[in-house]
């Protein structure tokens, strides 16, 4: 393969990977973040205790979280077809990725928000804050370093899921490594695509960590 062909292959794969990962992550947060917040604040002794809603949320989140992505992907094909117009292909994969990732996001958000010192929330209550003010002016800003760290982990996880995309006719670096590399005994393509994927994961992780540390004012 010429250098131009390599570049086309890998850049195309990278584009497909990001095309699945970034919108999926954003959509997963749009659903998972409010769920995670709701799950935390409806907990016992929190700012909006709703025991029944809270346990219902817990059950749903845990159930969805425990289905392996590859199974969910297959199970969802009919619904994916309805929602995305096609059951397979790179673009269509965004739907199962979001369904699979939002409960995970909810759990990550829950973990981050629970790290916020209860005393601080109590102080905000004692000052006459509304529930919305506590969520948006206290809990989220105080948890921001942890939330961003979580977002980097979620992005990497979704990126990992996209590598299974070849199973549903999707593209991306993972699909290239399997279909054009492993299956065709082209080890050079397999390694090149895998290394590109690893580099991308490292880039996200390191950038995430650095940024998280730079905005955290707890230790100076």
């Amino acid at each position: 393969m010429s250098q131009a062909q390599w570049t086309d292959l890998l850049l195309g794969g990278l584009w497909d990977t990001l095309y699945m990962t970034i919108p999926s992550t954003i959509l997963a947060y749009l659903i998972g973040m409010p769920l995670g917040i709701l799950f935390v604040i409806t907990g016992r002794d929190h700012i909006l205790p709703r025991p029944r809603l809270n346990s219902a949320l817990g059950v749903v989140i845990n159930f969805l979280r425990s289905i392996p992505f590859i199974i969910l992907l297959a199970m969802l094909i009919p619904i994916t077809r309805l929602v995305m117009g096609s059951g397979i292909g790179t673009r269509s994969l965004i739907f199962p990725l979001v369904i699979s990732a939002f409960p995970y996001v909810a759990r990550m958000v829950e973990g981050s928000l629970n790290e916020v010192d209860r005393g601080v929330i109590e102080a905000a209550q004692s000052m006459g804050s509304t529930t919305a003010q506590i969520i948006f002016k206290v809990m989220i800003p105080e948890a921001m370093p942890s939330l961003l760290n979580g977002a980097a982990i979620v992005t990497v996880t979704i990126l990992g899921y996209t590598a299974m995309a070849s199973a549903a006719g999707g593209g991306g670096l993972g699909a290239i490594a399997i279909t054009k590399g492993l299956n065709l005994r082209r080890m050079d393509i397999m390694y090149a695509a895998s290394i590109a994927l690893v580099a991308l994961v490292q880039l996200i992780t390191i950038t995430g960590n650095r940024y998280t540390r730079s905005i955290d004012h707890r230790k100076r």
């Binding site: 010192d117 005393g119 601080v120 109590e122 102080a123 206290v138 800003p141 105080e142 921001m144 370093p145 905005i215 955290d216 004012h217 707890r218």
Partner: peptide, 10 residues
């Protein structure tokens, strides 16, 4: 409060 309970990111 005993533990001050300040917003640490502000």
């Amino acid at each position: 409060f005993q533990q001050f309970n300040l917003l640490m990111q502000r």
